[in-house]
Write a protein that binds this DNA or RNA. Structure first.
Lengths: 88, 88, 88, 88
DNA sequence: GCTTGGGGCGTTCGAC
DNA sequence: GTCGAACGCCCCAAGC
């Protein structure tokens, strides 16, 4: 084997390049995710500084998310019913 | 009480506006976060389609993250050592 | 209902005994855990009394733990690689 | 400096030995702690296998711990009062 | 459905 | 003594 790297040639050159690209894309995206998470944290911290109860704020967000999910679910069922009877 | 809403006036108008703003900012950011998470998922899915083992890819990413964290810790402890012997 | 306790008979006698045993075992173990935590604290306190910087000591321990975790992850990914190329 | 190690002599030989001992003691204790934690987990797992609701079991343990703390607190206050009036 | 990883929460420790 | 930061614990959700 005339492999120019120390690893055995399990992946050919093309695959190795692809692999590298994939890992880098994921890592870049995870950085983005972490940045957004940091932003959220910062908003809560700021809110805390204004006297808001962060735990309650989180709960509000959670409840609204649930509510939104519920509404979308209901909408989906409505659409289903409508299509079942041949549209409105 | 001349409150125009059904809730008692625990929060004054300014605070209510701030609260609304905070919640909206967080919700917007969470949407961003979800979008990024979806992107990551998509990258892995695409990789899977090319024959890569997603489980291994995830582990590689995690390992590299650990690596990075370890390096940062090492740097931090070095700073600690330096300060312990009386500053640089 | 001829239950001799004030609670309704949701759990039969056997289950109640088991429950009691389980709770007691857990509580005993938590005491052990707390004792060990106290021992750790004491070691650091003693070290501090000898002039060591506790903050640095903690960081050293943490760093070594990271090291160990990283090694284990590396081992895990190796196993993954091996299984990916069709068993050992 | 005729130091036989690569590090500068910030710590003399005795201190280095002590340091090593301290770190090892802490690490050994942390292993113990982890082992106990694993035992606890195992008890809960076993309980789960017998049909108990682990989440509820945890809550029971937590409540009893709070109760115990409360009792000890009351006892402490009682002692305080007693000593304040010159013993019982 | 079981297991593993990520996020949130409470607690604890060190700093000021 | 209060503050913020770090740690471990617990829960939940996604992946296999």
């Amino acid at each position: 084997m005339a492999d120019d790297s120390s690893s055995i040639e399990v992946l050919n050159a093309t695959a190795q390049t692809r692999l590298k690209t994939i890992i880098e894309r994921v890592e870049r995206l995870e950085e983005d995710k972490a940045a957004v998470a940091a932003d959220i944290k910062e908003v809560f911290l700021e809110a805390k500084g204004e006297g808001f109860d962060v735990k309650i704020l989180r709960k509000v967000v959670r409840l609204r998310k649930q509510d939104k999910a519920k509404r979308m679910e209901e909408e989906a069922i409505l659409d289903l019913y409508l299509s079942a009877i041949g549209g409105l």
